[in-house]
């Protein structure tokens, strides 16, 4: 009978957890908080600056950083010691050079197909659903699930809503959706059980663009309501030209 490693009853953070033989997760907690996410961003930046041989890439998520490494170049003990040293550095709450985007969204028909249903379910006027969504301040906690797809925190509590009973086999590229406590922008045609509030002409992922990925973990996002006419105009612009229009700071 093999013996199983014991896990500590009250984990002390940061925790260093192996994922097999080529990845390690540094966990800073188990909840969704800007302070924890800031630690993830700070460690990622420090690790990139340290440029250690044998580190291949990282995946940032809400409260942990996955580090992919080559064990032939980076022994495990040295990896953990290096990461521990880098996490010990003083943290900033906001990542340096944090980018701020304003994302144009058309909420009107035929794009915001679920606005009436969401309003009914939440006992809100349709205009309130739109103004609540467009009026809030969002943080990109992570990019995942699909290329360039931002996981956004900051959805007002009054818009928290359970998923649709029947997921759609696909939602259009650029759909802006809500589900649970989250809101998201779908960069591609994907299946989804979330509610469609509108659509953005921005392309969060465009493999042909010089910078294929628009959003990064830590970015700040606001939505801006646009008309169908403005949506049509912006949709006609090359995606290279559209991206700078949405950037507030540089």
């Amino acid at each position: 009978m093999p013996s199983f490693p014991a896990t500590p009853p009250n984990p002390a953070y940061p925790r260093f957890m192996p994922l097999g033989d080529t990845a390690l997760s540094v966990e800073f907690g188990d909840s969704i908080l800007p302070e924890l996410n800031a630690k993830v961003l700070a460690l990622d930046a420090a690790l990139a600056a340290a440029a250690l041989d044998g580190i291949q890439e990282t995946i940032l998520s809400y409260r942990s950083l996955l580090v992919s490494y080559d064990p032939r170049k980076m022994p495990y003990a040295r990896l953990i010691a290096a990461l521990r040293g880098l996490t010990a550095r003083p943290e900033q709450t906001e990542p340096p050079g944090r980018r701020h985007w304003t994302v144009p969204v058309v909420y009107d028909p035929p794009y915001g197909v679920d606005v009436p249903d969401v309003a009914r379910r939440l006992d809100l006027a349709e205009e309130d659903v739109i103004s609540l969504h467009a009026g809030a301040d969002y943080r990109v906690y992570m990019v995942g699930f699909a290329p360039g797809m931002p996981y956004l925190g900051g959805l007002p509590e009054r818009l928290h809503i359970s998923r649709r009973d029947a997921p759609r086999p696909f939602v259009p590229e650029g759909s802006v959706l809500i589900g649970g406590m989250q809101t998201g922008i779908y960069p591609q045609r994907f299946p989804s059980g979330w509610h469609i509030l509108g659509q953005t002409p921005l392309r969060p992922f465009d493999v042909e663009r010089a910078d294929p990925f628009m959003f990064r973990a830590g970015d700040r996002i606001n939505f801006r309501r646009i008309s169908v006419a403005e949506f049509d105009y912006l949709s006609g612009l090359p995606s290279e030209d559209m991206q700078p229009l949405a950037r507030i700071n540089s």
């Binding site: 994922l19 097999g20 966990e27 969704i32 995946i59 809400y62 942990s64 950083l65 996955l66 992919s68």
Partner: peptide, 11 residues
């Protein structure tokens, strides 16, 4: 349900 985090092939 865990708070979504990074995964790799083999998980």
């Amino acid at each position: 349900n865990i708070v979504s985090d990074g995964v790799v092939p083999g998980c």
